[in-house]
Design a protein around this nucleic acid. Structure first.
Lengths: 188, 188
DNA sequence: TCCTTTAGATGATGTTTGTAATCTTAAATT
DNA sequence: AATTTAAGATTACAAACATCATCTAAAGGA
């Protein structure tokens, strides 16, 4: 087992945890579940993390990194505004509704993070700021605008996921789209 | 133990559950925790509910009923618009930040409800609709507007609860207030 | 080639969980 | 007054849980 092997294992644990926590919640996911999904037995876990709480913080950050880098990667020539609009459309898409495991970690875990201990809470606070910054129109915008759009997105997908009929889910997503457009147009 | 006694016990269980679930989450609250807070031992629980999942659904509805009736009770002479604006202000207040146990059940439990089984999910879906209706300006408004405002409120309080500093929490609440005013003014 | 180190496997520990059977006591019914 | 019913207490139990001690095999350095 080389150092590279260990890093690969570490990465597999983070990938599995980031997915499972979003799918089944933090308390709905055991350390054994994570290790199992990563292709290992639960005993090896403590070579990588000191506790479950540590894993929660690391996996949450891992998920946020993934989301943020996916947005920033998409270097469109038209600049940031286009990427951001595309992200909002993706966020409020039917695909994002059911793809819990790859979806927005703040939406799936935001409420739970606040009770998961100090380190996870810290990651949540940082994530909120990072995501809000991604959603700003210009660098000198007050961060408030990004926060409002982020809040609307999180709330909309949460409401849509609660809907029992596809029609109602669609309605919630549409409400988010209309609202987001409106916020962007009339802010200030 | 009279019938009235049983109803009182039932009610105490619902009150305790509605508070504890919002404070510590569904999976963070055991049946024994609930019965303890209700002043009983855990054994008696199954005289009142068939399972924990049944309790989750009933307690969530209990919490929503409480919130909705608190709004509708406040019969101001100026009519609904005033009550609703007051509700939005309350929702985005510093008090609502920390008063998890009495706060909006959709904000604390929305994400968790979706994985708590069929009956809880159903209550979540109904709650979303009821809350959206409360937030409409006129009876013939499309429900979409209420959904958008509700989503913004839920997201804002979630982001505020994640903040590590009071300043950042305040910023998230302000973003919600500004956004809500904007949505109300420019919708349609 | 031998030795040291360590990633991951195995298995154990003590706790907490949801659920249920049994017991006790008091109200409701006859 | 005698009998039945059932709410809540007590106790039990199997499953799941986080954590840890120990074992193993292989990698890296000597």
């Amino acid at each position: 087992m080389s150092e590279a092997d260990k890093q690969r294992s570490h990465r597999r644990i983070l990938d599995a945890a980031a997915r499972l926590f979003r799918e089944n919640g933090i308390e709905g996911t055991s350390v054994a579940d994570v290790m199992n999904a990563a292709g290992m037995t639960h005993g090896g876990f403590y070579r990588h993390f000191g506790s479950k709480e540590e894993l929660v913080a690391a996996a949450f950050r891992h998920a946020v990194d993934d989301v943020v880098s996916r947005i920033e990667e998409e270097e469109t020539p038209e600049g940031r505004a286009v990427e951001r609009d595309a992200y909002i459309a993706d966020y409020l898409s039917e695909a994002h509704l059911k793809e819990l495991g790859k979806g927005c970690p703040l939406a799936s875990l935001g409420a739970e993070l606040a009770r998961a201990g100090q380190a996870p809470l810290h990651e949540g606070a940082e994530a909120a700021i990072r995501m809000a910054e991604v959603l700003l129109y210009s660098d000198d915008d007050d961060k408030t605008k990004g926060l409002a759009v982020m809040a609307l997105l999180m709330g909309s997908i949460t409401l849509a996921r609660l809907a029992e009929s596809p029609e109602n889910a669609h309605r919630a997503l549409e409400a988010g789209k209309t609202g987001a457009a409106l916020l962007q147009e009339h802010w200030d």
